[in-house]
């Protein structure tokens, strides 16, 4: 089935590039791998009929986050002390701890009987964005406004922090 194949392909991409983010020594390559992971996440969103979220993910993470982080990487590796490749290779013990953590998490997930309802979103002609807008501007209106205040506070905070005074 085509959805299964797509899901496994996306899962492979996500795991491979996630590992690349945490193992590569070059900071630039690390950020580009993180970009690939975030795009793969957008693919997973599209696969599960979350088209609005998928587009938002691409806009926010491709258009804003990756560019911003790349700028910061290049600005902070401009001096003599730190070249662009100065990360260390991961140690064995931390890898073992990570595998144990993942084992515990995976065991918990598999052992729980998750309640699964009727899959209304399986119908891809169903308007998702309209429902999202209805929910966002009625039931979640207060969190929505608080989020915009948070964005304004972040904007001012970032300017105040990074300003040369």
């Amino acid at each position: 089935m085509v959805e299964n194949a797509l899901f496994y392909l996306l899962a492979g991409i996500l795991i491979f590039f996630s590992l690349k983010v945490v193992t590569t020594k070059n900071l630039f390559h690390s950020v580009m791998s993180a970009f690939a992971v975030l795009m793969g996440t957008a693919g997973v969103f599209f696969l599960f009929n979350a088209s609005f979220l998928g587009v938002t993910q691409i806009l926010v993470y491709a258009g804003a986050v990756t560019i911003l982080v790349l700028f910061v990487v290049m600005l902070t590796t401009a001096g003599d002390a730190y070249k662009i490749a100065w990360e260390k290779a991961p140690s064995v013990w931390s890898s073992i701890v990570m595998v144990l953590f993942f084992g515990g998490l995976g065991f918990t997930i598999v052992s729980i009987e998750w309640p699964v309802g009727e899959r209304l979103l399986l119908d891809r002609t169903r308007p998702v964005t309209e429902g999202l807008a209805n929910m966002l501007f009625t039931e979640y209106l207060l969190p929505f406004e608080i989020a915009s205040v948070l964005i304004l506070a972040t904007l001012i905070g970032a300017i105040v922090l990074a300003r040369r005074d």
Binding site: L14, I15, S18, L19, V21, V22, L27, S30, V31, V37, V69, V72, V73, T76, W86, E87, K88, P90, S91, S94, S95, M98, F101, F102, L105, G106, I109
Partner: peptide, 19 residues
Amino acid sequence: AAMFTIGLYGALTRKSIVI
């Protein structure tokens, strides 16, 4: 869960604050 674990691992072991 795998992605979360890898991200946690990176956040705990990487040296650059950006990564």
